[in-house]
């Protein structure tokens, strides 16, 4: 579903990623590892249209990303759920409202939002935190809300950029379990991380990046640098 063909992205003379060839299929769980500045985030940003490809081609479901107009980007993002290390929740909204927000901006009617949001909060295990504000939740719970929000559009692809970066070990593994569960339900998951233990536990495809290039690919990989 995602295909990079010799993709290069340059920020002010510095090549953030260089000459990347990569294909990710539907339903895969792919971990992208590497030190900070290796190009993991840039790779993800290219996929959800936050950054534009400078050289090469990037296809998502056989659509050339470069051919999309700015007005089309929002519709691309409704196919992709995105989760960040800093969660990006709205502090003045409850868990429910944070998730509902994603559906509101896409123009869903209220009754569908009510129905879907409670279902999604149930999937991520936050049924009893529905009306809590982010301040009243633990880091792990907040990240679950963020994941729930990313799932609101029933995305075909979930991108998680360092989702456990601010979490302790127990919470990290719980988030990982959740991501694997989502993957089992059919969503492709792309996880960028530093966390060695997580990657070793997943036992799935690992892509190691170094200085903007793919330095290693393993089908059932471990975290190695």
């Amino acid at each position: 579903m995602i295909r990079f063909e010799k993709v290069t992205k340059t920020y002010k003379d510095k090549k953030a990623i260089e000459n990347i060839d990569l294909e990710i299929k539907h339903g895969e769980f792919v971990s992208i590892v590497g030190v900070s500045g290796a190009g993991k985030s840039t790779l993800l940003k290219l996929i959800f249209g936050e950054e534009k490809v400078d050289e090469g081609k990037l296809y998502i479901d056989d659509i050339d990303i470069a051919s999309l107009a700015d007005e089309d980007i929002p519709y691309l993002r409704r196919k992709i759920g995105i989760v960040f290390q800093d969660m990006k929740l709205l502090p003045k909204k409850t868990a429910y409202e944070n998730v509902a927000f994603a559906m509101e901006v896409a123009g869903y009617p209220k009754d569908k939002i009510t129905h879907d949001v409670s279902k999604i909060l149930d999937i991520v295990g936050l049924k009893d935190k529905t009306h809590n504000f982010p301040d009243e939740m633990s880091g792990g719970e907040k990240q679950r809300v963020a994941i729930a929000r990313a799932l609101a559009h029933k995305p075909v692809l979930l991108i998680a950029d360092e989702p456990t970066g601010n979490l302790d070990e127990v919470n990290s593994f719980e988030i990982l379990d959740l991501l694997q569960k989502i993957n089992q339900l059919g969503t492709t998951v792309l996880l960028a991380t530093h966390a060695r233990d997580l990657v070793n536990k997943i036992q799935k495809r690992v892509i190691t990046m170094d200085k903007g290039r793919i330095s290693m690919e393993q089908a059932k990989g471990h975290y190695k640098l």
Binding site: D70, P74, R77, R78, K88, L90, A102, V105, H153
Partner: peptide
């Protein structure tokens, strides 16, 4: 600005 950033992430159209 936070709200706007999140709106962009979850696929709000520009006019929205």
């Amino acid at each position: 600005r936070e709200e706007v950033e999140i709106m962009k992430l979850v696929g709000a159209t520009n006019w929205y």
